Simulated scan of single mutants.
Amino acid sequence: MTDTLVIEGHASLFGLADLGGDVVARGAFAASLATRRTIPMLFQHDPSEPVGLWTSITEDARGLFVRGEILTSGARGRATAALVRRGAVDGLSIGFRTRAATPREARGRVLTAIDLWEVSIVTFPMLPQARLRLVAPARNRVAA
């Protein structure tokens, strides 16, 4: 048996300003999701050692909803899974390139088209409401 930890949550929420003042508009991810084959699951935006895979990434009514598996076969995945299981790390954050945006009156931008590069499990998300949760533990074991 190989252990995986199944997680899900919103990596981005529409209409909420992040700590930099940016707001993601509904539909901003649509073109990117239609053309990208895979989106890496990273820990703290570190591309050197992915920690799992996203099995589903979709825009829903609230934002960018992700579901995936942290793979515990590698050291980084094991450590990430342990931190998530214990509740020490529960943030999600997106790595992206802005395709189209308009300035906001206060500060920041309204992001209307985003090229999504990766979704990371992080300690401090730029959008504080972007959080993950564990999926039912009975479904967190898969056969090798």
Rank of each mutant, 00 (worst) to 15 (best):
residue 54 W to P: 05
residue 28 A to Y: 10
residue 79 A to E: 13
residue 15 G to D: 05
residue 28 A to D: 01
residue 14 F to S: 05
residue 18 D to V: 09
residue 98 T to F: 07
residue 89 V to Q: 01
residue 80 T to N: 00
residue 42 L to P: 01
residue 47 P to T: 15
residue 95 G to F: 06
residue 98 T to C: 12
residue 20 G to T: 14
residue 128 P to K: 08
residue 85 R to S: 02
residue 28 A to S: 11
residue 16 L to S: 08
residue 121 I to T: 04
residue 23 V to M: 10
residue 55 T to H: 10
residue 60 D to M: 08
residue 79 A to D: 14
residue 52 G to P: 03
residue 77 G to Q: 00
residue 26 R to I: 08
residue 86 R to L: 08
residue 79 A to T: 08
residue 59 E to T: 15
residue 33 L to W: 06
residue 84 V to E: 00
residue 95 G to D: 03
residue 27 G to F: 06
residue 109 R to P: 01
residue 34 A to N: 08
residue 48 S to W: 09
residue 23 V to H: 02
residue 112 T to M: 05
residue 121 I to S: 01
residue 94 I to R: 03
residue 128 P to A: 08
residue 100 A to N: 14
residue 118 E to D: 15
residue 56 S to H: 15
residue 65 F to L: 15
residue 59 E to V: 11
residue 77 G to A: 02
residue 64 L to F: 07
residue 13 L to F: 06
residue 50 P to R: 14
residue 72 T to E: 11
residue 43 F to N: 00
residue 63 G to C: 07
residue 36 R to S: 09
residue 84 V to W: 01
residue 47 P to Q: 11
residue 117 W to A: 12
residue 17 A to E: 10
residue 82 A to E: 01
residue 65 F to V: 03
residue 40 P to L: 09
residue 61 A to K: 11
residue 107 R to Q: 13
residue 88 A to H: 12
residue 65 F to E: 00
residue 55 T to V: 14
residue 27 G to K: 12
residue 46 D to L: 10
residue 111 L to N: 01
residue 95 G to H: 09
residue 120 S to P: 15
residue 45 H to Q: 07
residue 36 R to C: 05
residue 39 I to G: 03
residue 128 P to W: 06
residue 69 E to V: 12
residue 27 G to L: 06
residue 30 A to C: 05
residue 54 W to L: 07
residue 56 S to D: 15
residue 118 E to M: 10
residue 58 T to N: 11
residue 129 Q to I: 03
residue 99 R to A: 10
residue 124 F to P: 02
residue 33 L to C: 06
residue 84 V to C: 04
residue 110 V to N: 15
residue 96 F to D: 04
residue 102 T to C: 07
residue 94 I to Y: 03
residue 89 V to S: 02
residue 48 S to M: 12
residue 20 G to S: 13
residue 89 V to R: 03
residue 60 D to S: 11
residue 42 L to Y: 04
residue 16 L to Q: 15
residue 59 E to M: 08
residue 22 D to P: 09
residue 100 A to W: 08
residue 43 F to Q: 00
residue 37 R to H: 11
residue 33 L to T: 04
residue 128 P to V: 11
residue 49 E to R: 14
residue 73 S to M: 09
residue 118 E to Y: 12
residue 73 S to K: 12
residue 65 F to N: 01
residue 103 P to D: 10
residue 98 T to D: 04
residue 19 L to I: 14
residue 76 R to W: 00
residue 27 G to W: 07
residue 111 L to Q: 04
residue 90 D to Q: 12
residue 50 P to G: 12
residue 84 V to M: 03
residue 123 T to L: 07
residue 69 E to Y: 07
residue 67 R to D: 02
residue 113 A to N: 09
residue 68 G to Y: 08
residue 15 G to A: 10
residue 119 V to P: 04
residue 125 P to E: 02
residue 16 L to W: 08
residue 83 L to S: 05
residue 34 A to T: 04
residue 23 V to C: 10
residue 76 R to E: 00
residue 113 A to T: 14
residue 110 V to L: 13
residue 56 S to L: 11
residue 49 E to H: 13
residue 78 R to D: 02
residue 14 F to Y: 14
residue 38 T to G: 03
residue 34 A to V: 06
residue 12 S to N: 09
residue 102 T to M: 08
residue 40 P to K: 14
residue 122 V to W: 04
residue 119 V to D: 01
residue 118 E to R: 11
residue 58 T to G: 02
residue 77 G to L: 01
residue 104 R to V: 09
residue 67 R to M: 11
residue 74 G to E: 14
residue 112 T to A: 09
residue 112 T to N: 05
residue 92 L to P: 04
